[in-house]
Design a protein around this nucleic acid. Structure first.
Lengths: 211, 211
DNA sequence: GAAATGTCGTGATTATTTTCACATATAATT
DNA sequence: AATTATATGTGAAAATAATCACGACATTTC
């Protein structure tokens, strides 16, 4: 379970590979080469082969990769056989977008419950997920190890503290706040304003074409 | 304008620095050290010093950095003196979240217009931004160089093609589709399902604490 | 069944990024 | 004024990641 040898950069690409293989499989494709994959997902073909090779020799020379086999392999590598249950905190626009996203289609990830402090929202079912009051969070969240944080900035720190107390292990943080957690809690940040500004910066300072 | 020497990894962190310096300045803080910054934004202090040093000697030994000076410096580096106008395509939950996000507060980025194909939404003002029909996009978008793409998967390719024809230079793509564009158009992907699945993978395979 | 073609897996190389660690300079203290 | 504490900027090293390029082998074609 903890064969910690795969580079982080590779690990980040695995879900991407997995989803595309799923697509191919649905389309009934039987084989695929690193070159084809490369064109579809915009990752250098040598990088793809290298990535796959960390898991052993999954392909066949002169043929490519067997889609079904590869898919099955990634399914178990990405623990897709067991469903990961997730909680979402903050049912605003962004939170609602997540609730309506069907993660279970490609990934065995399921948002099991959501929390909000707005009386209007409590008790509703959004995207098939029940919304509870924040005050119920501590009891209800037990057994869930991953949280998506889509609350306003002002709430971020307080909620994070509660999540940590409730034993959460991973947080996908969409607030601009760099939340503070014990070192055994993993936080991934997605900062929408930063991403947008970075794109603008790259546009002005890193001309493409010539490259 | 094109002193292409700053590492990409550094460039991606600039907006983060900028926002935090803004916060400090608002709080009336006069000085800050790389160590303080490091604790706040969770980036190694040596990395911060190195990042800053690409722009010259911005600090003072034994003192740290002058917040106002540094802020002013980044403001011009990040082109914050001029407003960047952006269009958003797809006013669903995710799109609406963006429209309600006040980018202008910290960043001189303004979503100037939005597009959707839903008759219900056309003509509305969401978060202060007018929503037009997709069919008006080609005319209206002229002069805008950045687009945020928050449409359903099925629309992604068609809309992208239109955006490219309309002369867009950068796309912040939230669809899982790896859109195809000419090489002089810059695309940044943010794939929510991939991010979530990557977090889950890291949790299971990259134990923290010990590290 | 021989020749041509295709594609993997990987050693070696190169590029990029992070981190260490310390000389150097400023600021604070006594 | 001397001493101590602080914090930068950066050379050098280490870590991480991407890419090249080719031998080996499977598949396809003739």
């Amino acid at each position: 379970m903890r064969q910690n040898k795969i580079p982080q950069a590779t690990a980040k690409r695995l879900p991407l590979y997995y989803r595309y293989l799923n697509n191919l499989n649905r389309q009934g494709k039987k084989r695929v080469s690193s070159k084809e994959l490369s064109e579809a997902i915009k990752v250098d073909s040598a990088t793809i082969r290298r990535d796959f090779s960390y898991f052993g020799a999954l392909g066949k020379k002169g043929y490519g990769y067997n889609v079904e086999y590869l898919l099955g392999f990634f399914r178990s590598t990405l623990d897709q056989h067991e469903t990961t249950e997730v909680a979402l905190i903050g049912v605003g626009n962004l939170g609602t977008a997540f609730l309506n996203y069907n993660f279970t289609k490609n990934n065995n990830i399921q948002i099991k419950m959501a929390f909000d402090s707005d009386e209007e929202k409590i008790g509703q079912i959004v995207g098939g997920v029940p919304v509870y009051g924040i005050d119920e969070m501590m009891e209800r969240i037990e057994g869930i190890s991953v949280a998506i944080l889509t609350v306003p900035v002002s709430e971020a720190d307080v909620i994070t503290e509660k999540l940590v107390k409730a034993g959460i292990e991973g947080i996908l943080n969409f607030t601009p706040v760099r939340i503070t957690v014990p070192e055994d809690v993993r936080v991934h940040h997605i900062d929408l304003a930063v991403e947008l500004q970075a794109l603008v910066y790259f546009l002005k300072h890193y001309p493409l074409q010539s490259k």
